[in-house]
Simulated assay, not measured.
Amino acid sequence: MSILVFGSANADLIFTVPALPAPGETVLGDGFQQMPGGKGANQAVAAARDGASVAFAGCVGEDGLAGIATGAMRDAGVDLSRLLAVDAPTGCASICVDRAGQNQIAVAPGANLAARAAQVEDAALHPGVILLLQMEVPAEEVALLIRRAAGLGARCILNLAPPGDLPLAALRELCLLVLNQHEAAVLAGRVGVEPTATALRALLGCDVAVTRGVEGAEAATASGTEFTRAFRVDIMDTTGAGDTWCGVLAAGLDRGLALPEAMRRAAAAAALSCTRHGAAPSMPVAAETNALLSTR
């Protein structure tokens, strides 16, 4: 199998601060870094570093930030033949990280809004591929690609982040829907069910996984409910942990792991990412994840 990611690529501008700013407050930071980011690119990097064969489809601008946005994917060996450079600024995120490792993020989508489902050809959407998507590109294009991919036999995984408004018909085409607890609450409120994996699966008919940070993750499948504990680590920066979880989950499923085993591997990788600064640069390689799994 292989993984094809359709999503965003950003340049992350990261400010380390003593405390996250309150509304109207200016906080003097301790440091500044420029790093690759964007949920699509991050998840592509996480999957590739875990050993999967990964391709990426999306858009960047024709500017100096494009190289930053795509650098980690290039270094990880992600196939960028479906990446387009367009006449718009490269997507950019401003990220404040406090001393407890918590973050506050604002994103300007820029070129990501030009991403189109047509960048992915039908021949790439065969039963041997996992299509991994997020919501930082236009929702209508995500829905179009899900429907086309499902019809051609690809396994579709959507991380509904941020929790945009996608038609229920598109969600019902998925093999797996991944949300964090906030995203689950937003979707559940929109459709009128409890914000649990079980309730959402009953409504949608696809498998659903809900991540809950240090409280672990739950998944509802046709076989019942699965729960995975989080790995306890000393947290430095939580930026990118959710993307690490999604990318490594997809990589595990791609190599044939059952969902509970793939979730445990994803939890280990996400924990490791929290012990380092940044999003894509913090993501572990397979050997590091294997080492943590062997100790717990």
Rank of each mutant, 00 (worst) to 15 (best):
V233A: 14
R147S: 09
V186R: 02
C59H: 00
I68Y: 00
G64F: 11
Q33M: 10
D243P: 14
A57D: 00
P260W: 04
D63E: 09
V285Y: 13
C175A: 12
V191A: 11
G110A: 12
T198I: 07
G256L: 10
S94N: 10
G252Y: 01
G153P: 08
Q104T: 11
G77V: 12
A209K: 12
N10E: 13
V78R: 03
E194Q: 08
S294V: 09
F15E: 14
A106I: 15
P163M: 07
G64E: 15
A154I: 09
M135R: 12
L4D: 02
S223E: 15
P89S: 05
G128M: 06
A85F: 06
S53P: 14
H182K: 10
T90P: 00
G247T: 10
R99W: 07
A271L: 06
L176S: 03
N42K: 03
L28S: 13
I157P: 00
A100L: 13
I157N: 01
A111V: 03
P21R: 01
S53M: 10
N10W: 04
A52R: 01
G213D: 11
S223F: 08
A11S: 04
A280N: 07
I157W: 02
A209C: 14
A188M: 05
V186H: 03
D243N: 12
A118T: 14
A197Q: 13
Q34S: 08
G278D: 02
A47M: 11
A209F: 11
S2N: 14
G278H: 01
G37I: 03
L177M: 11
P109E: 13
F227C: 13
A52F: 04
L200W: 03
A199G: 10
E140H: 14
S273R: 02
